[in-house]
């Protein structure tokens, strides 16, 4: 389909120049008609080909590990699968958009603090990640949920909701103490290894049991 409005005889690359004369016109016509079938071939191939639609509510996409969505609490195996928020307020203080509110209390008969409320207004969160960086116990992570929706502005997520059936306080206290002791022991071992003649460096495994790798479950 030539649209050579300049009427010049110079062939434009990628464009078919309309030939002159009767024979040329007929050939042009035939060629133009053949292009119709080229188009039809493309669509027919597509018609038979693979479909890319995901039937969203019925089949949900798996998000990549790098996907960042609303923050969630990390569950730790050595704490019987509960979080380790000590309600230090660091995340609340550093949050540039003031969307985190953490309340905490001491566990009974202990100095250990524990979050009782972890509220996030995700509508103002900019996913900057400062709270993750500042968290001393590394109990914050990005979740991979992508289809959260609320009915009004200022919809508050309670991050503690999934931890409603945590272990009872004495049990938890025992777990936390046990972990602290394990940590202290590890640190002592590391120091001992360092002070000893550096003939052979301490094995890697001994220096790192402080925080096991976070489990990849959603908040």
């Amino acid at each position: 389909m030539s649209q050579d409005s300049t009427n010049s005889a110079v062939p434009v690359p990628g464009r078919s120049v309309r030939p002159t004369g009767f024979g040329g016109a007929v050939r042009f016509m035939v060629r133009s008609m053949l292009t119709l079938f080229v188009g039809l071939k493309v669509t027919l191939k597509k018609l038979m080909g693979r479909k890319v639609t995901e039937q969203y509510p019925h089949e949900k996409p798996v998000m990549s590990g790098a996907f960042r969505s609303a923050i969630a609490l990390v569950s730790f195996d050595d704490l019987n699968g509960t979080h380790d928020c000590i309600a230090c307020d660091a995340c609340e203080l550093i949050c540039p958009s003031y969307c985190i509110t953490v309340r905490g209390d001491r566990l009974p008969d202990s100095k250990k603090k524990r979050a009782t409320e972890f509220l996030v207004d995700f509508s103002t969160c900019s996913l900057c990640g400062l709270c993750l960086a500042v968290c001393p116990t590394e109990t914050l992570k990005y979740s991979s949920g992508y289809d959260d929706a609320g009915y009004n502005r200022g919809w508050i997520h309670n991050l503690l909701e999934p931890y409603a059936d945590d272990p009872e306080a004495p049990e938890l206290l025992a777990l936390l103490t046990a972990r602290d002791e394990a940590k202290r022991a590890a640190r002592k071992a590391a120091r001992a290894a360092k002070e000893a003649p550096a003939a052979k460096p301490a094995p890697e495994a001994e220096t790192t049991p402080a925080n096991p790798a976070p489990e990849g479950s959603d908040g």
Partner: peptide, 13 residues
């Protein structure tokens, strides 16, 4: 349906 298939979609489902 055909519109969907031609465009790599599924059409009404």
């Amino acid at each position: 349906k055909v519109a969907g298939w031609v465009q790599g979609r599924l059409g009404p489902m």
